[in-house]
Nucleic acid binder design. Structure first.
Lengths: 139, 139
DNA sequence: TTCTAAATTTAGCTATGACTAATATATAAG
DNA sequence: CTTATATATTAGTCATAGCTAAATTTAGAA
């Protein structure tokens, strides 16, 4: 595997294809545009790029499919998103903001930071009544 | 104050002007280019933009100065950088990676997430088993 | 079936932000 | 003081990624 290097924008499009297919079974240009708050021609252009990269396929005028490599990359991105969202929520960030910020962070963090964040998320927190004082880090 | 909305790129340039002035007393195009790993003409262009926005001033062929507003915005960005770097280091990320990742995160996180991260950083941690945590002489 | 509306695509414009090459200015060496 | 080198600027190219307007195709309603 040659590790495709995607722009943040293309990562967003690819991830959204994956999410819409999980949610609706199909990823349509219209829905991608609505979800990412861009216009349909922007989606069409992005899909052309993703096709060139071998990450998606599409019959003309129909829904977008993921190739096996596209599915792999998309799920990696989605996993980062989920991890980062959980992480922010654990810090006390509201869900909506956690989702939005995770969406930006998922494209930029190094493997090392992601790893440490994962360790943190997987560390059970002590009886959290409201304590802002973390005590024991039991693993 | 009308809250200038800067691109990530311009935030990086403005922050670097500030850092170089703190470190060397002067921010030169050459040093900004070296620090941000871009070429000098890219810096020149960015400086033109920052001048238009009233954030920096510059005598032709000399160093870049911050306006009072520029200094304010730059120090806000730098403070975010410092916070995020401390945060990553507290999670166990190495200093170099923490610095690099902080540099990306500083442009994207919402006020709410920054606030929660700040709370986390300011929470004393108990003796960690692998204390490779903060101890470093940051520059 | 026919036609209208929605979805998709194409063409082309704009802004940002990088680059190289060439020019202008400043600084340092002799 | 003159000149070579370093620094800064200008001009122009390219890629990304958004947009609008217009053309094409699909699909649903009459």
């Amino acid at each position: 595997m040659e590790q495709v290097k995607l722009s943040q924008s293309l990562e967003d499009y690819l991830e959204m294809v994956h999410m819409l297919r999980l949610a609706n079974g199909i990823a349509r240009v219209r829905d991608i545009a609505a979800a990412l708050k861009v216009k349909m021609p922007s989606v069409a252009k992005a899909v052309i790029e993703l096709k060139k990269l071998g990450l998606v396929t599409q019959e003309p005028y129909s829904g977008i499919e993921l190739t096996s490599e596209g599915a792999l990359v998309a799920s990696q991105i989605l996993n980062r998103h989920i991890l980062l969202k959980s992480f922010l929520i654990k810090l006390g960030v509201s869900e909506a903001i956690a989702d939005k910020d995770a969406c930006c962070m998922e494209h930029i963090l190094s493997a090392e930071s992601l790893e440490k964040i994962e360790e943190f998320v997987n560390t059970p927190s002590e009886p959290s009544k409201k304590s802002k004082a973390a005590k024991s880090t039991k693993k």
